[in-house]
Computed example of a mutant assay.
Amino acid sequence: MSVPETQPTALVLTALPLEYAAVRAHIEEREELVHRDGTRVERGRLPGTAWQVALAELGMGAEKTAALTTQLIGWLRPEAVLFTGIAGGLKDDIAIGDVVIGTQVYEIHGGKQTPEGFLVRPKSLPGSHALEQAARSAVRDMADVRAHFLPIATGDIVLADAGSEIAQLLRRNYNDAGAIEMEGSGALHAAHLNGRLDALVIRGISDRANADKTREDASGSQQLAARQAAKVTVAVLHKHHPRSAASDLPRSSRSFRSSDPEEGPHRGLGDGATYGGDHIDFSGGTFRGPVIGKTDGRR
């Protein structure tokens, strides 16, 4: 088994070959790595960033995705995990080719069947705040991308009937979801169980999750959706910097941390707290953020 180098790694996951190809087109100087259990990734350089990107094609399904993502995280030790690809749209105002960035991911099959009917027991996982913020910043300057920040539903189903029982369940219980797909919850579960790891699901809309799905897919909508999702994924990595590279960033792009005594006058803010220009740093790590208003302890 090849041993990955110790460099900032972003793990980009896909389910389908066309999704993989859309991301692969952005990665240079690729090499193939093979895990001892046979899982393969291509690792390469993302131009204009400090990232090396490890790209994997995992196949369909949340359970398989969770297992393989856990394996890849343990092997490659990435700082960020992004699942990118295509999905069905669930809103009338979300068009084919639009991109949905998952503010959270719903698992839609959990519940209890009773004589009164199926009682939903919703489960959700949030996307990374840092990656979501990077995505919001990135898409502002992408005139050719129409992005939506909404929850994404994950279910072991391909939805092609807007009048089906599962479609009705989505409308009743997950009516804020913008897209439905099959893998996102598995990737987020694996990321959340592996400590401090940023993760986000990014999906291009290839169909409207209705009876027109086959016709829309045949029109090339899947390729368009995969390209748009890959474009946003790459833009997010241009915005989101590796933690190990944070000290090399310009001040305007750094995290809010200013404990350097040369950065400004220090004022009495309690033990271990310093004021550096426009930021407070508590050495105990309980607060780091911009200072708004007075800092003399009055409320």
Rank of each mutant, 00 (worst) to 15 (best):
Q222V: 09
I180R: 00
A190R: 02
E57N: 12
G184A: 15
A246Q: 14
V120F: 02
Y106I: 04
S252A: 14
E63A: 15
G277A: 14
A177H: 03
D98G: 02
G59T: 11
D144Q: 02
W75Q: 04
V105M: 03
A130L: 12
L33A: 04
S252G: 04
E42K: 08
E42Y: 05
N175R: 14
A225Y: 01
A134Q: 01
S219V: 05
S164K: 04
K64W: 09
E183N: 11
H192K: 12
V81N: 00
G61R: 05
G285Q: 10
G163H: 12
A56K: 00
R243N: 07
S255C: 13
V34R: 12
I205L: 11
I205G: 00
D278M: 09
P4Y: 06
H241N: 11
D92M: 05
K213C: 13
D281H: 09
M182E: 07
V232G: 01
I108L: 12
T69Q: 03
A56D: 03
S137L: 13
E79C: 07
R36V: 14
D212L: 12
W51V: 02
T154F: 08
H129Q: 13
A211Q: 15
S252L: 11
L46E: 07
K213H: 10
H129Y: 15
L237G: 00
A211H: 14
Q71E: 14
V201D: 01
F282C: 10
T295S: 06
F83E: 03
L170Y: 05
V236R: 01
H266P: 01
N175F: 14
K231L: 08
F256P: 08
R121V: 07
K239A: 13
F83W: 07
A56H: 03
R77D: 12
S255D: 15
G268V: 08
I180F: 03
R40T: 10
H189F: 10
N194V: 04
R140M: 15
A134E: 01
Q228S: 11
A187D: 00
A54N: 08
V201E: 02
A95R: 15
P17F: 06
E31A: 12
A245N: 12
P8I: 06
G89N: 06
S2A: 13
